[in-house]
Write a protein that binds this DNA or RNA. Structure first.
Length: 253
DNA sequence: ATGGCTATGTAGCATAGA
């Protein structure tokens, strides 16, 4: 089974790229973030014509998540259990024998922002909920835009980013807390090129200058991690015309 | 170089992203 996560930064703008990519990569399931589309405007017909089913939870302008899969996603659940949140950031569903949890973790803006406190509270709720979820579903994958670079090697310039949002000790501790629940960072199960990133700023030619961060992840529960055969980031998508600032991340098992 | 670029909502710019 091949699964992927991609922050599309507007599904409307990225739809042609998504359909091309689905035809080329043929993943069994894809989790999308930042769809920025309300449910009644979700491009379901185009996606179904490409051979995929979809479940989604969106809002205008911000956030929005979706799960696309060749087989119908079942037992769909919205949000983080026990956490009231108007922002559409999580959708979960079962595809084949795998529980997929699609997450768009808050950005946090800066350490002195209310949004940073919201991010940490959000991550705490996610952790509590995932602890219970992973006990209900032996084969669980948590995938999406975590907005956390877990280690210095996930940052193009660790000195410049030290202590900044996406890299702060509290955010990294929250990420390690998820690992502590029994999840593995699929990307690090394998040898990877140096300077492997999943996001590059639109500005200052950051992509061409390899100035990126690895903030999009696929976490696998122990059983799935044992079966995992590959994990990679499809950086070619960042070379497209009108690219998303994020590249898709992929895992196979 | 606290700028740089992109997308959205909405009709000039403001907000957010990371």
């Amino acid at each position: 089974m091949k699964i992927a996560a991609w922050n599309v930064n507007s599904l409307k703008v990225r739809l042609p790229q998504l359909l091309d990519w689905l035809a080329r990569e043929q993943p069994d399931a894809v989790c999308l973030q930042e769809t920025k589309v309300e449910d009644h405007n979700f491009p379901l017909q185009d996606i179904e014509r490409s051979g995929y089913r979809a479940v989604f939870s969106g809002q205008k302008t911000y956030n929005g998540v979706a799960i696309l899969a060749r087989e119908s996603p079942l037992a769909v659940e919205h949000g983080v259990g026990g956490f009231v949140d108007a922002q559409k950031r999580v959708i979960s569903a079962t595809v084949k024998d795998v529980r997929l949890v699609c997450v768009y973790v808050p950005n946090g803006q800066s350490l002195d922002s209310d949004k940073y406190r919201y991010k940490l509270d959000w991550l705490k709720a996610l952790s509590t909920w995932l602890d219970a979820e992973s006990k209900k579903h032996a084969r669980t994958a948590v995938l999406g835009d975590f907005n956390i670079a877990p280690e210095d090697r996930d940052v193009h310039d660790p000195k410049a980013w030290e202590g900044q949002v996406l890299c702060s000790p509290a955010e990294r501790a929250a990420f390690q807390g998820l690992i502590g629940l029994g999840f593995k960072d699929s990307f690090r199960l394998f040898d990877q090129p140096e300077k492997s990133f999943s996001w590059w700023d639109y500005r200052m030619n950051a992509f061409q200058r390899k100035m990126g961060l690895r903030i999009d992840h696929i976490l696998l529960s122990d059983g799935l991690a044992r079966d995992c055969k590959s994990s990679r980031i499809d950086i070619e998508m960042r070379r497209n015309e009108r690219p998303s600032d994020h590249a898709p991340v992929i895992a196979g098992f």
